[in-house]
Simulated scan of single mutants.
Amino acid sequence: MTKKIIAFGASSSTNSINKQLAAYAASQFENADTEVLDLNDYEMPIFSLDREAKSGIPELAHHFFEKLGTADLIIVSLAEHNGAYSTAFKNIFDWTSRINPKFFQGKQTLILATSPGPRGGLTVLEIAKNRFPFQGAVVNGSFSLPSFNENFNANEGITNEQLKNDLLEIIESIEL
C-alpha cells in the first residue's frame, strides 16, 4: 500500500527555500504519494481569543488539520525568523491547535530547517524538536541544511555529499 507524505515549508515566501527542502526530502522516499502544501493557501486572520469567540475557527484551519490527518508522514521545513517560527506558520499553528492541541495527530514527523546562513535554522529547529511532541508529533528525525545557496541546487537537490548522506541516513531510518 502506498503511503502518503504531506510536506511543507513553514514560510509564506513565494520562493521559500524551506518549501524546496521539504519537497526534496519528500522526493527521496520511494513508493510514497507526496503532497506539498503552500502556507499561502492557508492565510488566515491573526489568531486571537476575541476573534475566535466572535467568528469561530477559520475553515482554512480545519482544512489544514484535515490535510495533516491524511498523512502517514509529515515533513516540515522551518524558516527561522528572528530565532523562532515564521509568523505565517505560527498563526496556522495557533489556529489549528484550537481544533486539537495535538494537531499533528500522532503522525510520524521529519523536521527540517534551512537558511542562507551557516547555522541553517538551528535555533528554530531546536524549538520545534522540543515543542512538536506536545502537539502530537512523533518526531522521527531532524536535519539542518546550512548555507542553502551554497549547498542546494534546484535541479540536483543537496549538492554537498556529506549533508546529502546525512539526510538520506535519516530518511532511511524512517519506516513508512
Score class of each variant (00 low, 15 high):
residue 1 M to E: 09
residue 3 K to S: 12
residue 4 K to S: 11
residue 5 I to K: 02
residue 5 I to T: 06
residue 6 I to Q: 02
residue 6 I to R: 00
residue 8 F to H: 00
residue 9 G to S: 01
residue 10 A to G: 15
residue 11 S to V: 04
residue 13 S to E: 03
residue 14 T to L: 11
residue 17 I to Y: 06
residue 19 K to T: 06
residue 23 A to E: 11
residue 26 A to E: 07
residue 28 Q to F: 12
residue 29 F to R: 01
residue 31 N to I: 01
residue 33 D to K: 14
residue 36 V to M: 02
residue 38 D to I: 01
residue 39 L to K: 00
residue 40 N to V: 01
residue 40 N to T: 00
residue 43 E to S: 11
residue 44 M to E: 03
residue 46 I to K: 06
residue 50 D to K: 10
residue 52 E to L: 07
residue 54 K to M: 14
residue 55 S to K: 12
residue 56 G to E: 10
residue 58 P to M: 02
residue 58 P to D: 01
residue 62 H to Q: 11
residue 63 H to C: 05
residue 71 A to D: 04
residue 73 L to M: 05
residue 74 I to Q: 08
residue 74 I to Y: 10
residue 75 I to K: 02
residue 75 I to N: 00
residue 75 I to Y: 05
residue 76 V to D: 05
residue 77 S to I: 02
residue 77 S to Y: 10
residue 78 L to T: 03
residue 79 A to S: 13
residue 80 E to C: 04
residue 84 A to N: 15
residue 85 Y to G: 02
residue 88 A to Y: 01
residue 89 F to Y: 13
residue 92 I to K: 02
residue 96 T to W: 09
residue 99 I to Y: 09
residue 103 F to V: 03
residue 110 L to H: 07
residue 112 L to K: 03
residue 117 G to K: 07
residue 128 A to V: 03
residue 135 Q to E: 15
residue 136 G to Y: 08
residue 146 P to V: 02
residue 148 F to Q: 05
residue 151 N to I: 03
residue 152 F to Q: 01
residue 154 A to E: 12
residue 154 A to T: 12
residue 162 Q to W: 14
residue 162 Q to K: 15
residue 163 L to Y: 15
residue 163 L to Q: 09
residue 172 E to K: 15
residue 173 S to F: 08
